[in-house]
Each structure stands twice: as C-alpha cells, then as structure tokens.
Simulated assay, not measured.
Amino acid sequence: MPLLLAPAPAPALRSVLGALGSPTAVREAPVSALRTHQGPLSPDHPLPVHVWDDISRPGGTPHTRLAGWRFLVRGGERAVATAEARLTPDGWTFARFCGGPYVAATEQALAQAEALTAPLQPRLLSVPELYMLTLWLHHDTASDGAEGLPAAGDLLVPLAPAPPGIAAHRPQRLADLLPRLTLRLAPAPLLREPA
C-alpha cells in the first residue's frame, strides 16, 4: 500500500527549492555528500516533523507540536541529505541541510512502511528527551500532517541509531512502545549507603 504523504505547505517547499538552487547554500552545507554531489538535487518525500515534548509527564496524553517540514534531498537514485523548513513569524523559511545516519534510516523506514498493508500517513516524531527520531505512521490519512496527536494504534518506527533498549527499524504500536519510552526516562532509584 503506498503511503499517503501530506502535501508540504507551498512556501516551505519553495524555501527548500530556493536553498537547493543556491550554489552558496549547497557549497556551505555541513553535509559532504551534498557538497560533492554532481548533478541535479531535488526535494522528495516531504514529512512534517513533530516534537514530543515532556514525554515523561505522568498520566498525560501525548502532546506534540509541529517543528517544521523535512524533505529527503535526492541526488540521482538515493537521498544524499535532508533539507528542513521552519515556520517563523514571517512565514516558512529554509532552516538547514542535514546529513548523517538519519538520512539513510529515514529512507529505509519509508521503504519498510511501503510494504505494510494499511493506508498510513508518514510523519517524523522527535523525542528530544531520548535523542530519538521515529517515523510516525499516522492512521488518519486525511489529516493535513501539521496537526493531530499520536494515537494508540499508530505505528512508530524508531530510526537508527535508536536509544539503548529500543529496536531500530521495528514498527511498533504507540501503545506498546510508550511504556518502554517512559521507563527509560524514569529517575533511577537512589542508592543508600550501607549502615
């Protein structure tokens, strides 16, 4: 079943296209694969990036906020980087190019998700408290991608590198993964010195 991508806001896409069309922005990018790529570069697979703040809050419902849109930057057959657009008081603007392991991990997770049978809307969900990024496969395919909360039946695919104890690239229902995430954030018990 093909994934149902939410369309990125047109100004966000334009800001990324402007950066990709700027020799200076590409030449000064901190991503060597982007700087050294020969040939055209194009944005692909727009994904809204949601941040899950305060995941360790007990008894609370998941609270996320839209942080921007991330595009895989294709150079030929593969992604060589990502490009991000952020919403500012003046509108959408290009934020940065990124490289590193999350580029290939995002591409791999999207390929895994394509093999699933249910229609799902892909998003990215960042969990800053755990230094973790997941592909969030949202059940509401009609939503615009900028809103909505993770639901118990949504699937999360932790991207590599994942935190210790969390399997990378293993799709898991939010309801199953959430207890393990909150356990990882629980304070360690204080050790008492022997009397």
Score class of each variant (00 low, 15 high):
residue 160 A to D: 15
residue 1 M to D: 06
residue 121 Q to V: 01
residue 65 R to P: 02
residue 142 A to W: 12
residue 175 A to P: 14
residue 186 A to L: 09
residue 134 T to G: 09
residue 111 A to V: 05
residue 75 G to Y: 10
residue 189 P to N: 14
residue 47 L to G: 04
residue 76 G to E: 00
residue 125 L to A: 05
residue 169 H to G: 15
residue 159 L to N: 08
residue 13 L to H: 10
residue 50 H to W: 08
residue 49 V to P: 03
residue 47 L to S: 03
residue 191 L to H: 15
residue 56 S to W: 08
residue 182 T to Q: 15
residue 110 L to Q: 07
residue 122 P to T: 02
residue 9 P to R: 00
residue 115 A to T: 08
residue 31 V to G: 00
residue 194 P to M: 13
residue 193 E to H: 14
residue 9 P to M: 00
residue 171 P to L: 12
residue 140 D to V: 03
residue 190 L to T: 04
residue 122 P to L: 01
residue 122 P to M: 01
residue 4 L to A: 00
residue 122 P to D: 11
residue 140 D to Y: 09
residue 164 P to R: 13
residue 128 P to A: 02
residue 33 A to Y: 02
residue 163 P to I: 09
residue 172 Q to F: 07
residue 140 D to A: 13
residue 146 A to D: 13
residue 58 P to K: 04
residue 34 L to N: 11
residue 15 S to R: 01
residue 163 P to S: 09
residue 131 Y to Q: 05
residue 79 A to N: 11
residue 134 T to Q: 04
residue 45 H to C: 07
residue 60 G to Q: 07
residue 157 V to M: 13
residue 151 A to P: 04
residue 42 S to L: 10
residue 79 A to E: 14
residue 174 L to R: 07
residue 13 L to D: 02
residue 50 H to Y: 05
residue 17 L to R: 09
residue 27 R to W: 07
residue 44 D to L: 03
residue 93 T to A: 15
residue 70 R to T: 11
residue 174 L to M: 07
residue 139 H to K: 07
residue 140 D to T: 02
residue 71 F to E: 08
residue 155 L to M: 13
residue 23 P to E: 01
residue 165 G to Y: 14
residue 187 P to Q: 14
residue 137 L to E: 10
residue 18 G to W: 06
residue 60 G to T: 07
residue 18 G to V: 02
residue 172 Q to C: 15
residue 175 A to H: 14
residue 67 A to K: 04
residue 149 L to P: 06
residue 29 A to W: 00
residue 21 G to H: 05
residue 87 L to E: 15
residue 126 S to P: 00
residue 104 A to V: 06
residue 98 C to R: 04
residue 115 A to S: 15
residue 138 H to R: 14
residue 123 R to S: 08
residue 61 T to V: 07
residue 45 H to Y: 10
residue 134 T to H: 03
residue 162 A to I: 11
residue 169 H to Q: 15
residue 22 S to K: 04
residue 80 V to F: 06
residue 41 L to E: 00
residue 108 Q to F: 14
residue 81 A to M: 06
residue 175 A to V: 13
residue 136 W to L: 09
residue 169 H to M: 15
residue 136 W to D: 13
residue 126 S to H: 04
residue 5 L to S: 01
residue 76 G to R: 13
residue 82 T to Y: 10
residue 77 E to H: 14
residue 120 L to K: 02
residue 126 S to A: 14
residue 99 G to S: 10
residue 168 A to N: 14
residue 115 A to Y: 00
residue 158 P to L: 11
residue 151 A to G: 08
residue 146 A to Y: 04
residue 108 Q to P: 07
residue 55 I to Y: 01
residue 130 L to F: 08
residue 116 L to T: 05
residue 193 E to L: 15
